[in-house]
Design a protein around this nucleic acid. Structure first.
Lengths: 251, 251
DNA sequence: GACTTTTGTTCGTATATCGCACAACATGGC
DNA sequence: GCCATGTTGTGCGATATACGAACAAAAGTC
């Protein structure tokens, strides 16, 4: 690609959108400038453009995104049949298990939730479609990494900031690669409070008819409610059932 | 806003993203150019930029969006606590009713789904968070329009293409305004196959503690399963219960 | 209230982008 | 093969945009 085939104004604008997030629902021009590393004048122009187009609101001081911004993600979600196909199965799975169930795909070093059926239980993590978690310490992430050639999985791990979110988080690349081999062999991954204390989960790959892994399915449960060691016993049959039901329906 | 405060390259890029959709998961440069009305050279630069940033894949002929594009909508979903708060209540509501339940907000002339709990039933419409429907012929749209000052609701209707999706669709602005008054009085809206034959729904507003309408909740059901006339009788108590439970939790 | 610090806005200029016209390539009909 | 049609890639002049710095306006600080 030639240099002139890159629209940097567009790229900068996308960076500005991404500056909004959980902790930053409202951004001033200066805050957005700090978070993006772009010049205040540039950020201001991008934000005013978003506001002019109805993607953002501006009260003279702070900018907030509007629901119109969902049109952008919608273009992907509606273009990709996976979320719509999976959703009712997740609902059923979640109901049977009495726990939250989700589906996700890999994007770089992170898993992205594409569908989710949540239970009423209170969790510190609020997950909705579009949410992201680091792959190395999430059950679906382990399953999705295990589906890749080992070299590629290593490459992704090398790009990841392997942070110890809890004392139990595995952060050694070699240990993680060994774990991925185990996941590949047994066909599922169990996470015991590696992302957050008190949270366990179990995931299986979602394959299409040709055996390609297209996503991952999981069930998450509070550790106080279900010990990690019991996860496979209690939920693996349900997950396998859902996996089998979906196999002929995807891709 | 001065003219130079608008980044047209950014605006053009966003238009290109929106060109992708249900019927267009893969776009060539020429197709995207036709759909957006932008010059091919411009579209090409935007698409190559998206590809360079990892928001799109390019096989030399067609572009497809990647899950990374969800980061953009995620900035809104995670910044807005509504979806996460509402989701478990929708799941419960959907389970009790045995039908799909959803929450949405108004964006221009359309309602945007921000959360949804779907049931296994097959519908021709695939709705996921981010999906959009015209407000005038959707139950949540009626509720949200009814919450606005009448002049504003009229203004939105005047901007809407009032299309008769089915023989039952109300398309006369005056009739719609009268319907909105009724909805405002009774506190709920019922749609009987105005969007699609065979599909009925009932919606109530979701208010915060100060009484402001922040979203709408609905239950949709196949007409073959539940007659529109029975909707209020069967589901209104459940909807009111959910509405009351959420009232102190939102905003 | 005077001072410092931070934030928002404006401006001139160097630079990047746009849209056009044309070249290059692919596809299909005959 | 050869033209008709449709597509993608590229060079260029005109135009729009980004940058940095300077200025203006708030917001803290003492």
């Amino acid at each position: 690609m030639r240099e002139t085939d890159f629209v940097s104004g567009f790229a900068r604008g996308l960076t500005v959108i991404e500056a909004f997030g959980e902790a930053q629902p409202r951004l001033s021009i200066a805050e957005a400038s700090k978070r993006t590393g772009l010049d205040r004048a540039t950020v201001r122009r991008s934000l005013l453009t978003l506001s002019e187009l109805g993607y953002a609101d501006y009260d003279g001081k702070f900018f907030t995104l509007t629901p119109k911004i969902l049109r952008l993600g919608h273009a992907y979600l509606s273009a990709t049949p996976l979320p719509a196909i999976v959703q009712p199965y997740l609902d059923q799975l979640s109901e049977k298990a009495g726990q939250s169930a989700s589906a996700s795909v890999l994007d770089g070093t992170e898993v992205v939730y594409v569908a989710r059926a949540s239970q009423r239980r209170v969790m510190s993590i609020n997950l909705v479609p579009g949410s992201r978690l680091p792959a190395y310490c999430a059950s679906m992430g382990r399953v999705l990494l295990a589906a890749l050639p080992e070299a590629q999985a290593r490459e992704i791990l090398s790009r990841t900031e392997l942070k110890a979110n809890t004392p139990r988080t595995k952060t050694d690349p070699e240990e993680l690669v060994a774990e991925l081999r185990k996941v590949r062999e047994q066909g599922y991954a169990v996470i015991d409070q590696e992302l957050e204390l008190g949270l366990c989960s179990i995931a299986v790959p979602l394959m299409n008819a040709r055996g390609q892994v297209v996503a991952a399915l999981n069930i998450g449960a509070p550790a106080a409610h279900v010990a990690a060691a019991e996860l496979a016993e209690r939920y693996l049959p349900l997950l396998k059932e859902t996996q089998a039901a979906l196999r002929p329906l995807v891709q």
